[in-house]
């Protein structure tokens, strides 16, 4: 996008938030329905956006329909605010939503659109998290027919999904799903929580914020309302577990940058070719560094 290009403010072709008012209303209605039926994949029209399907058009439509003047928006991609997808979406929002602030700080945001991560910092009741979803239906791996999948969802029949987990344990001694871990919301619908790591799944449980999931290509919106029950599918004797960041000495790996031992880490290769681990959530990492710096200043 050309940063020098200014969108004509008063022309009928573009309204606040790019989508026309009718489109935004339809999305809002869908969001309301999705909140009423936690975990239910609510169909919606999904408009064409000026970017390819798969670049977060589902999440973006939700964000653009909910954002208003006075909101502060944060966009993250795999935890980072400065990766290409996040930067472009943020610029698009800035361009189409006058008087809306953007931020890189989780704490300051009222609306957070995210790809593949839930922020480390606990969210508040005043915040909304929008997750971008490529494949909304967790049953697609066991049932090709959408009509039959709908019946299975309706009847809460997830035995075939569980059978897949059983087969995983038989073959690999553990459940091998790393992302998109099927999670049951409020005891009925099982959702695909988008490609967040297993580490983030417990964050869906009893979260204070409203979590909305939007799939643009598949034209579905679903919700994990505040304080919802979110149970990853598992067996009584093979419980769900998150990624393990212990090193060969049995110690929890720490972020090479900020030293955090309570965050989701990305594995990187440094300039010397050595493997290092670093916070995936860049805001979290920066905040910790800033706090540490202040402490040092105070000590000095």
């Amino acid at each position: 996008m050309n940063p020098g290009y200014e969108l004509p403010q008063n022309e009928a072709g573009y309204s606040f938030g790019f989508l026309d008012e009718y489109a935004k209303r339809e999305v809002r209605r869908t969001v309301l329905k999705a909140i009423c039926i936690p975990g239910y994949q609510t169909p919606y029209a999904s408009r064409e956006m000026p970017m390819g399907r798969g670049f977060g058009t589902g999440g973006l439509q939700v964000t653009l329909s909910l954002v208003g003047p006075g909101d502060t928006v944060k966009v993250i991609d795999q935890g980072a605010d400065d990766s290409v997808n996040a930067v472009n979406l943020r610029k698009f929002i800035e361009l189409t939503c006058p008087h809306v602030d953007t931020t890189e700080h989780t704490r300051d945001a009222t609306l957070i659109q995210s790809r593949h991560r839930v922020p480390e910092m606990p969210l508040t009741e005043a915040q909304v998290l929008v997750l971008q979803v490529p494949y909304p239906d967790p049953l697609v791996v066991v049932e090709p027919s959408e009509a039959r999948r709908k019946t299975m969802h309706g009847e809460g029949d997830y035995s075939r999904l569980l059978t897949k987990l059983y087969e995983d344990i038989v073959q690999f001694d553990e459940i091998t799903i790393s992302h998109r871990y099927p999670t049951r919301i409020n005891g009925h619908y099982v959702i695909d929580p988008s490609p967040i790591p297993r580490y983030d799944v417990p964050q869906l449980h009893q979260n204070r914020a409203l979590i909305l999931l939007g799939a643009g290509r598949e034209k579905k919106i679903y919700a994990v309302p505040p304080y919802s029950q979110a149970d990853p599918l598992a067996f009584d004797d093979v419980p769900f577990r998150t990624e393990d960041f212990t090193d060969e000495y049995g110690r929890r790996r720490a972020c090479a940058r900020c030293g955090a031992i309570d965050s989701f880490l990305d594995e990187l290769i440094d300039d010397d070719g050595a493997r290092i681990w670093q916070c995936s959530d860049s805001d979290y990492c920066n905040e910790r560094l800033a706090a540490a710096g202040k402490q040092e200043v105070a000590r000095a």
Partner: peptide, 12 residues
């Protein structure tokens, strides 16, 4: 297992 899982048995 599939049939047992249908009848709400959940202990691997």
């Amino acid at each position: 297992a599939e049939r047992l899982l249908m009848s709400d048995l959940s202990h691997y």
